[in-house]
Each structure stands twice: as structure tokens, then as C-alpha cells.
Amino acid sequence: MRKVEIFDPAMCCSTGVCGPSVDPNLTRLASAVYSLEQKGVNIRRFNLGNEPEVFAENGAVNEVLQEKRADALPVTLLDDQVVKVGEYPTNEEFSEWLEIKGEELTQKPKVRVSINMDK
């Protein structure tokens, strides 16, 4: 099974999908990552603000950062090899790398809300 790792710049939360102005590309990425996780794909995201040690310990990412600094983020690895620098992978790239259909990347998280009306 292929492994995808995305090394994000420092963001306020783990997905970057928060705050008053949400980047639609981050929303798309969060949805794709969620869909891939639900399919059992080995995919992880790391946030520089919360997990700097992971960036320092990864030789490939560390090399990119030494050369291009934090402006190089995000960095995406596929099976420990750098495949994308400075931009997030597109759904088409995920499809190609993981040999899945593009429509399989748009699954929305299902949230159940429980309301107790016994008051």
C-alpha cells in the first residue's frame, strides 16, 4: 500500500479549515484526506506549528526546507519521495498516485448530533 505524507505550514488547527476566511483548497484537501482515510489509505498530515520535530526528523522534508525555507511548504511525500513542493496535491494527482477514481475523494464526514429534550 502506498503512503502519502503532507507537511503543512504552521496553521491554527490540524486541517487549516478554520477561522473567518477558509481557503477552499484546504477544504477540498481536508475532504480528500478524510475520504482516503475512510478507504484505508495510509495518509497523514503534519502541521509545522504543532509537530516541528517530524519536519526536522524527515530527511527529505528537511532538505527541501534547508534549500527553500518555509515558503516551500506544503511538501508532499509519496512513499517517502518528494512529489510536490509549494502546493497541495490536486484530486487528480491523488487519483493517479493511488489508482482510485476522482469521485472517491469527495466523501463528506458524517456527524451525528444528539439532542436531549428531557428538561
Rank of each mutant, 00 (worst) to 15 (best):
K84Q: 13
L73Y: 00
D79Q: 08
F55L: 14
V83G: 05
K101R: 10
K84V: 11
L77K: 09
Q66R: 14
N91D: 14
E67K: 15
E53L: 09
E92I: 03
P52S: 11
R69M: 03
V61W: 06
A72L: 06
G86A: 08
E53Q: 15
V64A: 04
K68H: 10
E104A: 11
K68S: 11
K84C: 15
G102M: 14
V75F: 03
E103K: 09
W97G: 10
V82C: 08
P89G: 02
T106Q: 13
V85I: 15
Y88R: 15
V82M: 12
N62G: 09
L105P: 11
P89H: 03
E92A: 13
P109D: 05
P89L: 15
L105Y: 00
L105E: 03
G59I: 09
D71N: 12
P74A: 04
P109M: 07
D80L: 01
L65D: 04
F55C: 11
N50R: 08
R69I: 01
R69V: 07
I100G: 01
P52M: 14
G86K: 07
G59T: 08
T106W: 02
T76R: 00
V61R: 11
L78A: 11
V54K: 15
N58T: 12
T106M: 03
D79C: 11
P52Y: 06
A56H: 13
F55N: 11
L78F: 10
D71F: 05
S95T: 06
L78Q: 10
L48H: 07
P52D: 11
E103S: 14
G59F: 03
V54H: 08
E93W: 00
E103C: 06
V83I: 15
F55H: 04
L48N: 10
D71I: 10
V83Y: 00
I100C: 11
L98W: 02
Y88V: 09
P74I: 08
N50K: 12
L73V: 14
W97I: 00
N50Q: 15
G86C: 09
P89D: 04
K108F: 01
D79A: 09
V82E: 04
Q81C: 07
E99C: 01
T76L: 06
A56K: 08
K68C: 04
N62S: 15
K101M: 00
V75D: 06
N91C: 02
